[in-house]
Design a protein around this nucleic acid. Structure first.
Lengths: 134, 134
DNA sequence: GCTTGACTTAGAGTTCACTCGAAGGTGTAG
DNA sequence: CTACACCTTCGAGTGAACTCTAAGTCAAGC
């Protein structure tokens, strides 16, 4: 017997069985191979694809954009440039997101320091704070 | 006349007027001052609070957690320690999130390089890739 | 006085990404 | 043969966070 059952795939990917079927339904995964009894059998490549998709999802790509990416992939080599462009754009968004996170992290640290000194109401960004970084 | 109309507040915060009212409804904002005709008038402090809440939201805090934070704030100084703890926990989550993002950013860069060399199917994380960072 | 436009409310509707329920098939253990 | 675990499909339900609609108020301009 070859391939993983949906329960095993769920275990390995961290996605629920519901979500694995759902991703297949909406075309994020190619139709998964079936055993003689109709049960799904996931290959390592299937799991690798899930793993890749999860990286995109967890960096904020919508399922819709992932569907588009997968669609381009299906169109073969001629779409490589477009896929590269999508990925590259996504990269930029992730980077921007990280910069925003870093800024807020600094801000939170500042707030926490204020707390340590009991100097802050900590429910609004004050004029002074807005000027702090300019 | 003092304070901003809801349209001006929307402009300044980037939130829709719907969302500004919604945040007030669910208690994220204190009831905003009203003009004689019943229209809202947002103060700079109101906008500062929105700005603070957006920092929390944009770093992944749920509205529910923000409600709790605001509730603690209403309870006054005795809740300062709890607020500090919440913020500190949130800080940790943001940091963890950033580390995950950095990892994926590296991964995307790797994939982009593969594209540049036409060496990659770019739809799955391969065994080789999984081993790359171990 | 009438129209226009910005606001008000309460409550309904939308989107996204799942998540579940119901009814049924299959395979093995007792 | 029966019980049970595990799978199948289809369609409906959920929760978060908005987003919009309808009906009404009010002030300003023609």
């Amino acid at each position: 017997m070859t391939g993983y059952t949906i329960a095993q795939a769920s275990q390995k990917t961290g996605l629920s069985t519901y979500t694995l079927r759902y991703y297949e339904d909406i075309g994020l995964l190619e139709p998964v191979e079936r055993a003689a009894n109709g049960h799904r059998r996931y290959s390592d490549d299937d799991l690798g694809r899930v793993s890749f998709l999860l990286k995109l999802r967890d960096t904020g790509m919508s399922l819709e954009d992932m569907q588009q990416f997968v669609q381009l992939y299906r169109e073969g080599d001629e779409s490589a440039a477009l896929r590269h462009a999508m990925l590259s754009e996504h990269r930029q968004r992730v980077q921007a997101r990280m910069e925003a996170l870093q800024e807020t992290l600094d801000y939170i640290d500042y707030k926490l320091a204020m707390y340590a000194n009991q100097q802050d109401s900590c429910l609004l960004e004050t004029q002074a704070e807005r000027e702090r970084t300019s």
